[in-house]
Simulated scan of single mutants.
Amino acid sequence: MATSGDLEKAAGVLRAGGLVAFPTETVYGLGANAEDPAAVARVFQAKGRPSDHPLIVHIGGPEQLGDWVEDVPATARLLAGRFWPGALTLVLRRGTRVPREATGGLETVAVRVPDHPVALALLSAFGGGVAAPSANRFGSVSPTTADHVRAELGDAVDFVLDGGPCEVGVESTIVDVTGDVPSVLRPGGVTREDLEAVLGRPLAVHSTSRVRVPGQHPSHYAPRARVVLVEPEQVVAEARLAQESGHRVGVLLPSAFAGVPVRAHAVVEVPRSMDAYARELYGSLRELDRRGCDLVVASLPEEEGLGLAIANRLRRAAGPRRSG
């Protein structure tokens, strides 16, 4: 686990224009000084991330929001006051402090306050904003432990802060508050139901939007194995057919079928609790890769609560892969 000496070293790396991987409650981030365009460019290079895909600027507290955005509308103040620190990212008009390199060239910026003691301690020690996507290669499974980061990015990261396993396990919810009507651009660790309870109105959830944000690429959060989605009652039969066709099949077995014999190379039983499923999802996909599966059969959970975010990640994991 990270020590005070580790935190000071990490803050020094950020000041020098280096990259630091750090834990949040959602996933591990790959951070750079948000005000240093050259350092931000290194993040894109390390991940192999297209330069027009914006990053999230992590700040130390809600009171700092006005330092990074052009204005803070009432809806943003309400959501920040209720959910920060936490797994909620707000999209607002970019302030002059934020270089366009961090926003993918957009005039909007995504901002959040992470709910993790190590992340908050790093932000305090550094004294500025940290621009960070997830600490993995672009499009692949997000890391939820420091070992995941080291295994995937290696020497591309100047320093890794170990804060233990991430508690939430899927990325933050992104809400666009630039217009009159807020909307969810990416479901995540804060549920739509909780947001609606605070706002007192229903929220639309968009798979694409006029505002580019992290996690909207058709193929994202994907293991090396190809992911096939079927109805829950079809998972066992689909796995058997694929195994008989010569695939090394991995299965995310729905909790309703726990204990049912499955003909497959590897089986991971999905937790009944959506909190536990979200926390374990990326680790399970990595485990199936580690065990040599070339195809993963899974089904979508009910799309309520955290199930909405899990379904979003699985759909993108099953999306069309980039060629080359």
Rank of each mutant, 00 (worst) to 15 (best):
V40C: 12
E107Y: 09
P202G: 11
D155Y: 08
G188N: 11
R286L: 13
H116T: 08
Q45N: 07
G169N: 04
A131V: 01
P232H: 04
E196H: 08
V235T: 02
A298T: 08
R291M: 02
A131H: 04
M1K: 00
E280M: 12
E171C: 10
R240W: 05
P117H: 06
S323V: 14
T26S: 07
G169E: 01
E25D: 01
G164N: 03
R210Y: 06
S273V: 10
E280F: 04
V177C: 13
V20S: 05
A204C: 03
A34R: 05
L55P: 04
G5D: 14
A225C: 04
R316I: 05
G95M: 10
A38W: 09
V168S: 03
G305L: 07
S245R: 15
A32T: 10
L122N: 02
G246L: 10
V249Q: 01
R49L: 12
G29R: 11
V141N: 07
A10S: 11
V227A: 02
V251M: 02
G29A: 11
S273M: 12
L185R: 07
T108M: 10
G129N: 07
V168A: 06
A278M: 07
G163K: 01
L241T: 13
V113Y: 11
G61L: 00
R290F: 00
P301W: 08
S140L: 15
R263L: 15
G163S: 00
S219Y: 14
S4T: 14
D36Q: 10
G128S: 14
L241C: 05
L19A: 05
P218M: 07
Q45S: 14
V20K: 06
D158Y: 09
R291G: 02
S51I: 10
G95P: 06
A2W: 02
E196R: 03
